[in-house]
């Protein structure tokens, strides 16, 4: 549940698209503050790297990392690694939504489904997906299948839980009003329950994606070969290529950040925040 706090805080700054100059200035201030924090952290790293107390190969300077990053971007290898990882994460995440959202809804709507699945979900959820990698490797071999299943495992539970909570928290007055206006079960489902539970479903998607992204990199380290951001990091240890590791880490961080902000942030702004079902944080 700590992830709620993380994602929630992100929405505050960019929550509004209004061209209000005061708000825009506040938004710029926030960007500047973030830049200062990150800049200081990078400068500290660079200072330590340049003291020479550690071997260059283990603690490369920032220009070295940037050079490696550019080289990998230019020869296309970083793109391929990223595409492999994205394919696995999106596939697993998609499966998690396809299974998690309907299951969460069914659990919230039908007592017997809830009674059947809740113990199972509660028992499986605390198992770290990473702990299952060796077992799944035995079962499914090395490659895409295992990593996708690991991602799916990591991403499904937040999706189920949030959807389940969301449907249970749908205002009964909406169901009553819709029923009075002649909505049948099918219409009720699509026109009231899904949009009514959407704040929770979107939060579930965010948490789900975050866990999927963490899981894919871990799974790739052991269960992938030749391609993937996790694999390239793990492989780089063989040749003491800390620069490749750090360059890949930067790409991992960037893609995760981009999804969080651009995909889920804008999804939230255009739905639940626009509808006033979720508000941005007060300054």
């Amino acid at each position: 549940m700590t992830m709620v706090a993380q994602t929630g805080a992100n929405t505050g700054v960019q929550g509004n698209k209004t061209p209000d100059p005061a708000k825009r200035a506040a938004s710029w201030r926030a960007v500047r503050r973030a830049a200062i924090t990150i800049g200081l952290a990078l400068a500290t790293y660079e200072l330590i790297a340049r003291t020479g107390s550690f071997p260059r190969a283990l603690l490369p300077t920032l220009p070295m990392i940037v050079r490696t990053l550019f080289a990998m971007l230019l020869d296309g290898s970083m793109l391929m690694h990223s595409l492999y990882t994205l394919y696995r994460v999106l596939f697993g995440f998609f499966l998690a939504m396809v299974v998690g959202i309907p299951l969460g809804i069914l659990m919230a709507r039908f007592r017997r489904v809830e009674q059947f699945f809740l113990p199972l979900v509660s028992a499986l959820m605390p198992i770290p997906s990473f702990a299952l990698v060796p077992l799944f490797m035995l079962w499914f071999g090395i490659g895409n299948l295992t990593t996708i299943i690991i991602v799916f495992y990591a991403a499904t539970f937040p999706m189920i839980f949030n959807t389940w909570s969301g449907v249970r928290s749908v205002n009964p007055l909406w169901l009553r009003a819709a029923g009075a206006m002649g909505a049948d079960e099918h219409k009720l489902f699509w026109k009231v329950i899904i949009p009514g539970a959407s704040p929770f479903i979107i939060t579930g998607m965010r948490q789900s994606f975050l866990r999927a992204w963490i899981a894919v990199v871990g799974a790739e380290m052991i269960a992938a070969s030749n391609w993937g951001l996790g694999w390239v990091i793990f492989d780089a240890k063989e040749f003491l290529n800390a620069d490749i590791m750090l360059a890949s880490l930067a790409v991992i961080g960037f893609i995760g950040f981009a999804f969080e902000r651009l995909v889920f942030g804008s999804l939230e702004r255009n739905t639940v925040m626009r509808w006033g079902m979720m508000r941005s944080a007060k300054s």
């Binding site: 007055l173 909406w174 009003a177 009075a180 206006m181 079902m277």
Partner: peptide, 14 residues
């Protein structure tokens, strides 16, 4: 029959 409730939250916010 059409029904109007007391609670403002009866409207669909979306």
């Amino acid at each position: 029959r059409g029904v109007v409730f007391q609670d403002f939250a009866q409207l669909f916010p979306w």
